[in-house]
Design a protein around this nucleic acid. Structure first.
Length: 513
RNA sequence: GGCCCGUUCGUCUAGCGGUUUAGGACAUCUCCCUUUCACGGAGAAGAUCACGGGUUCGAAUCCCGUACGGGUCACCA
């Protein structure tokens, strides 16, 4: 497999929306594939029909699409390749019939066996073990000798049971005492004694394979060269590795990624955290059709896909240089599995916002202007003239992390102040103030309403009346904008124009008397 | 609890035996710019590299133990 084309896969189960941890796993897979000129496939692992959630698969495809990490093959790649690719179907429920023969070869070579124990019987055994002080009963090389399976039952009994249709599962036969070793691309050598891994179910009684079997068989069939997945799979990796050996297949490379942790450090980030933690955990909004609640997504929160992806990439990976702001293409060329860290990473929303700010500044002016105008229209209905909008964008974008910040910071460009900042009123507004702005209003009316001449005019007034900027500036700003914050007041006046400025001054004179 | 994985500033991390008075970024604070707010610039504070033993002339870097954290123990993925 050393010389073959790199092929990786992201294989989520459609049990709900994909959360940011899942997106990161997909991202690392994608980056690795693209870095090596390989393929990134999306396979849906829907062998557990009881946990199937309507709309989840579409959500996964949409979310990856938004991030710009669309699959080259499989689900979501139907527009690129017929049926998603030559290894179709890519939905495990549709591959149901593929697994049988593989299970049979294992049974034939006595590496797997049939087990007739009912779920009820099993839970009773577990319960009894629990009472006896064993909290972790396992179906393994020792206990299987006293269970109802094809190893303990006679051949005719087994045939009889099969004939009458008694449900059974197929379990893998784990060796009694063997070191199972494999090399992990991020952790180095990992070794587990087979004693500690149980006789996992390979084929369920409903005829569908479990993840363990399906994942190994499909990865083989789909020619996957590198299995890159979350650390939660590390404990079952020895089983998967053993399965490759049992089938006599060359093992793919494995890489187990560190988990995304909650900001408080207590456990991994999970779907259930929803918005409880004060930030979205999903890439896109997700409507839960049962509860009719919406969990918020990064896209709708105003994040750029590029910023979101950049931020995710740095949660557990670092190029080893001081560069932090990366485009997708830059991530691809810099990505190396060896630079993935081993420890879990706590998510930090502040840093996420910072990444977005960086990407906002990287945006082509044209695109940013378009986004600004669109959001402006959507939120307030204002449709300003393009050149005018360009100026206001220039004025306000420095202080924004998101496009929506530009809108909220610049509302007074569109609407006369509804109220005046109380602190400034108390501090700066006095009996002289009305005279100042009344005079300014008439002086301004005799000049061009451009920031330059307005400012000149203002300064002339200051020197001729021996006034300081501090006495008059804030008062003017208060009257025009209602607040003391923001960019140059002369630029603001230029943008809102003479009529509006004079109206605001008059209004302030009335309301602040 | 068993097994597995991990542990460098509050957070993400650089570091892969000597170039380290442990570097960067976010957050925090100070100053400058702006008589505003941000942006920007300069700077400060912040990590005895979890702890204890080794190995070595020399360890954040290698080994062992302990502690702590996380993951996982289903006919779920």
């Amino acid at each position: 497999m050393k010389n073959s084309r790199v092929r990786v896969r992201f294989a989520p189960s459609p049990t709900g929306p994909l959360h940011m941890g899942g997106v990161r796993t997909a991202l690392y897979n994608y980056l690795f594939a693209k870095k090596h000129g390989g393929d990134f496939l999306l396979r849906i692992e829907d062998t557990d029909r009881s946990r199937f959630v309507q709309g989840a698969e579409k959500y996964i495809v949409d979310a990856l699409g938004w991030c710009g990490i669309s699959p080259d093959e499989g689900i979501g790649a139907e527009d690129k390749l017929t049926n998603g690719g030559k290894h179709h179907p890519y939905r495990q429920s549709e591959r149901k019939d593929i697994y049988g023969p593989y299970v049979q070869t294992l049974i034939d070579s006595e590496l797997a066996y049939l087990a007739f124990d009912t779920p009820n019987e099993l839970s009773m055994v577990r319960e009894r073990a629990m009472e006896a002080g064993n909290p972790n009963w396992q179906y393994n090389s020792i206990t299987r000798t006293s269970m109802k399976n094809s190893l303990t039952l006679s051949k005719t009994d087994v045939e009889e049971k099969k004939k009458v249709g008694e449900p059974y599962v197929v379990r893998v036969k784990m060796p009694r005492n063997e070191e199972i070793k494999f090399h992990d691309e991020v952790r180095g050598w990992v070794s587990v004694n087979s004693m500690n891994v149980d006789d996992k179910v390979l084929l369920k009684s409903d005829g569908l394979p479990t993840y363990h079997l399906a994942n190994v068989v499909d990865d083989r069939l789909m020619e996957i060269t590198h299995v890159i997945r979350g650390e939660e799979w590390l404990p079952s990796a020895p089983l998967h590795v053993l399965l490759y050996d049992y089938f006599n297949w060359e093992r793919p490379s494995f890489a187990h990624l560190p988990l995304l942790l909650r900001p408080d450090g207590n456990g991994k980030l999970s779907k259930r955290d929803g918005d409880k933690l004060g930030f979205p955990v999903f890439p896109l909004n997700w409507n839960n059709s049962e509860t009719n609640e919406t969990a918020s997504g990064y896209k709708e929160a105003g994040f750029y896909a590029a910023g979101f992806v950049n931020m995710l990439a740095f949660l557990g990976w670092n190029p080893g240089t001081n560069q932090e702001v990366f485009s997708l293409d830059e991530l691809i060329s810099s990505f190396r599995l060896e630079k993935v860290s081993k420890a879990g990473a706590r998510f930090d929303f502040d840093k996420a916002r910072w990444f977005n700010q960086q990407h906002l500044r990287l945006r082509p002016k044209k695109d940013l202007l378009k986004e600004y105008l669109e959001l402006l229209k959507k939120t307030s209905g204002h449709v300003p003239e393009k050149n005018w909008a360009k100026k206001s964008l220039d004025l306000f974008m420095d202080r924004a992390e998101f496009v929506k910040d530009i809108i909220s910071e610049s509302t007074y460009l569109f609407e006369d102040p509804k109220s005046y900042d109380n602190k400034v009123v108390e501090k700066k507004w006095n009996s002289d103030s009305p005279v100042f702005i009344k005079t300014l209003k008439s002086l301004f009316s005799q000049t061009n309403y451009t920031s330059e001449s307005l400012e000149n005019c203002f300064k002339k007034y200051l020197s001729s009346s021996s006034l300081s900027f501090g006495q008059v500036g804030p008062v003017l700003r208060l009257a025009v904008a209602g607040t003391t914050q923001g960019p140059s007041i002369f630029m603001v006046m230029e943008l809102i124009g003479q009529e509006s400025t004079e109206r605001r001054i008059d209004s302030a004179l009335m309301r602040l008397q």
